[in-house]
Structures are given as C-alpha cells and as structure tokens.
Design a protein around this nucleic acid. Structure first.
Lengths: 108, 108
DNA sequence: TTACTTTATCGCCTATCTACGATTAACGAT
DNA sequence: ATCGTTAATCGTAGATAGGCGATAAAGTAA
C-alpha cells in the first residue's frame, strides 16, 4: 500500500552482515592496487613475470623514495616479493596472492 | 660476470611504462573496495541483486553518517547507484562497472 | 680503505580518509 | 501545518596517504 517503487525494486530481507573475516584481507589487497602507480608496477612485474629493481623508478614519473614507498605497500599486501641481490633488489609477483585477489573479485 | 642471481631471475628488458590510461580507472575502482565496510556493502548489494537503503546502516557497526560517506564513495566510483524512493534511497549495483572491475583484475 | 651504486628510511608537508555527532533537507503521514 | 522518518551534508578531529629531498644502510668495485 502506497510503497510503490519500494515494492518493485527493494529487497528488504533482513541480512546478517556479521563479521566477514575475508573483507579485511580483500580490502587490503584492493588497497594495494588502489593507486595508478601501483597498478602499473604490478602490471610491469606480471608482464615480465620475473623481477625488476630500480628500473621501476626509471619507468615511473616519481621520485625514487616515492616508488620505494609504493613497493613497500605492495610488499606488505603480499602481492609482490623482494629479493636482495647484492646492492639491488629484485621484485616479483607473488602468484598465490595475485590468485587470491583474482578469486576475490571474480567471486563478487 | 659476477651478476649471478641477477642473471637468473631478473629481466632487464627496457620497458615503456608510458601513460596507462586504464590504470587510473582501475585504481579508482580498486579504491572503491579498498575498505572493509565498502567490501561488505558491495557484497550485500550483490547478494540481493537489488537495492537497499538505510538498512545497510543497521548491518554495519558504523554511524549513519559514516555509512553515507562510504555509499558516496562507492557511488562516485560508479560501482553502485542510488535511486530516490520517497524518503528512502535504494542502492543497487551497477553491473557494467562491476564487470569492468572484474575484467580489470582478471586481465592482470 | 675509499669511492660508487642501489635502495630503504627519515623528516616534512599537504591533502585526503575515516569516524562521529549534529544539523539540514526531503518526503510521507496525520 | 506539523510530526516522524530517512538520508545527505556540515563541522570537527585524528590518522593516514602521497609526494619530495636528504640521509642512511648495504653492497660492489677500485
């Protein structure tokens, strides 16, 4: 009665939105790629499916310290890994984490 | 010559990481779901594949104004849409945007 | 040792997020 | 017109992001 469009389009089934333990990890992974520079870094690493180092800095219009910050964020999310190789550091994708991200989004 | 592991794991092919026009949109979409509350909102809306309104507030341990902010962020990303229905507002997923997000991540 | 290279970290600054209570605006119902 | 409901917006406050230059740390090479 009277609640016209509400009836049509809204589903008012009560839902339990209880603690979604995966939401935090999902958000963490999404956050890792929630910046254009980090998207490009991830794509670059996937593209060569191996690791790179300060060359990433040359490819981005950002200061070395800024790129290092982004790499740190990506590392903390687990999406990438860094491996010390002498004075250089090689970064590569963590396939498991990438897969987890893909599963998350695909499962939406 | 000395650069042992570098030879093994690093790919030093020079890359053009020129302006990636999709990176911005990708980051924007990722940013939209880069918060646990927004992940839950999106999941909720997908779950009932219709729209909801202030009920979202009841399902989250957040103040009404805070939830409204998150909804605004999601709306700005295009992931969800709001439709005024009298004094209420019904939110629903924007399938095109969601698909775009999925394509982005799947294409990584 | 002394350079030189490479990368991480340290301030520092500005801008934005996140959260909240309080207020405003819009609508329905009486 | 008045009341009650709903949702957005306004301030405010604290935390964090994002950018940079400068510095420190770690390694290589001479």
């Amino acid at each position: 009665m009277a609640k016209k469009s509400t009836q049509k389009r809204c589903d008012s089934t009560p839902v339990k939105l209880k603690a979604d333990p995966t939401a935090d990890d999902f958000a963490k992974l999404a956050w890792a790629i929630a910046h254009p520079a980090r998207v490009q870094i991830v794509r670059l690493l996937i593209g060569r499916e191996a690791c790179v180092c300060g060359e990433i800095v040359d490819q981005l219009p950002l200061a070395q310290s800024t790129v290092s910050q982004h790499l740190k964020i990506l590392k903390e999310s687990g999406l990438i890994q860094g491996e010390v190789d002498g004075p250089k550091v090689c970064y590569c994708i963590n396939p498991d984490r990438l897969e987890r991200l893909k599963d998350f989004v695909a499962g939406l």
